[in-house]
Design a protein around this nucleic acid. Structure first.
Lengths: 236, 236
DNA sequence: TGGCCTAATAAACAGTGTTCACTCTTTATG
DNA sequence: CATAAAGAGTGAACACTGTTTATTAGGCCA
């Protein structure tokens, strides 16, 4: 039935609308139903439970983030890992700052009592995002690997399924590179999540500038040597 | 009244107990009161509102974290910035991993509809934690400053009150060093918050190892040159 | 004893997720 | 054409939440 899909989509859209305007905690079945001219109980023919709806929302939003990230590096030269990591980093922060509630939904636990299921659809989007970053590291690895000759990381450090997935896409990539890509993710996520959750504003006037400094320093992890001494060469 | 203080403390303790066992969303006035053999309404003679109670809890917990961090670097040689930053980083992660609900309370927005007040008691603990990290950077700055000669950071990048506070404690420290300390905080926070929120486990078998690698790399930002090539020299 | 303050209560209000018996409409089949 | 089946939605109920308010019990002091 087309109508069923349409209603499902409308429920999700309404939920996201409420979330964007009133915060993640405002995802209330009753409020959604009221907004749509229905009853709360009616939603249960589309989603088993509220957590189920939230799970689907998280998967959708996360998938949208993955799209954004993929699109961001798509516009970069394929062999310029430094440009790619800068683009990725900027896209990550821009998305988070412009969609703070979505960010909280995906990376926080804003929804009361919600417990994420094992390996849901969200896991797929997470793997996609990770893969994008790993692709960047893979592109820059020839120039970067000399920085990690002493690394003691091995494939057993990672989840077997994840490691297998990575090795399929990038057969020649060593575990040290995978560790690097996860660390890069962590570095970006740190400043961004501090900012989104309001822990940077009290101290920093311009979080973007601080973040840009971090990104430039971060690009050095890929063997990139910035032209000139000033980070102002970075296009934002 | 002594009795009043005791009851206030018991309310806070009960709230923290519930939070630790059933998550941050379980901070329910009714549940707390039930546990204490009172009525929910009675709590309102001790705390104006639930958000008020949460604010006090956050301040307490954050203050405890600051104590932990201060104690961690207290045990380090005063002039060894690298050892200090490693100790700080390990203490930060250990605290977060061992007290995930406290971490979520302070750095997330786990409590539904809670809005943090401007410059509450939590801000003081945040400044304390920042100051600890800035102290580490200050200790290592003589050996590290050559890495940041091209920095274009200025005092105007920071909040005036925060900048003034820093300059009182560390008169000779340039703004680039303050930016560095905030970035170090961000780097630690990134991997830790990803881990606490469950975004690392699906990919990484041993988050601690990844984090240690990051810490070692991070100590290089302070001009530290690790002995040997292996990060195994780091005492955990 | 009378007055006062404080702590605590019970009941109410509006909101939440969830379930369930029931209705109405549409669709397909004998 | 008539009848059965399935789909979609309702409205009332249950147990829970934070919060407010009127009211009561107990201690303290003059």
């Amino acid at each position: 039935m087309r109508l069923r899909e349409a209603t499902t989509a409308e429920i999700k859209a309404t939920a996201l609308k409420h979330m964007a305007s009133s915060g993640t905690a405002a995802i209330s079945l009753r409020a959604i139903a009221r907004d749509m001219g229905m009853t709360a109980g009616a939603i249960y023919s589309y989603f088993d439970t509220r957590d189920n709806l939230v799970s689907v929302l998280i998967a959708d939003v996360y998938s949208g983030l993955a799209d954004t990230l993929e699109a961001a590096i798509e516009a970069c030269p394929k062999d310029d890992a430094a440009a790619q990591v800068l683009a990725f980093g900027q896209a990550y922060r821009n998305w988070a700052v412009n969609n703070p509630e979505e960010f909280r939904l995906v990376y926080g636990d804003a929804v009361p009592d919600y417990q994420p299921p094992e390996g849901g659809a969200a896991a797929e989007a997470e793997h996609r995002s990770c893969a994008v970053l790993t692709g960047i590291v893979a592109a820059g690895w020839p120039k970067a690997q000399h920085l990690y000759i002493g690394s003691d990381h091995s494939w057993s450090d990672f989840d077997p399924a994840f490691a297998e997935l990575i090795r399929q896409s990038f057969p020649d990539l060593p575990p040290a590179a995978v560790a690097l890509s996860l660390r890069l993710w962590g570095r970006m996520h740190g400043l961004v999540s501090l900012e989104v959750y309001g822990h940077l504003r009290p101290q920093v006037q311009d979080p973007q500038k601080l973040y840009r400094t971090e990104l430039v320093d971060l690009s050095k992890s890929l063997g990139h040597v910035p032209v000139g001494d000033s980070p102002s060469v970075v296009s934002v």
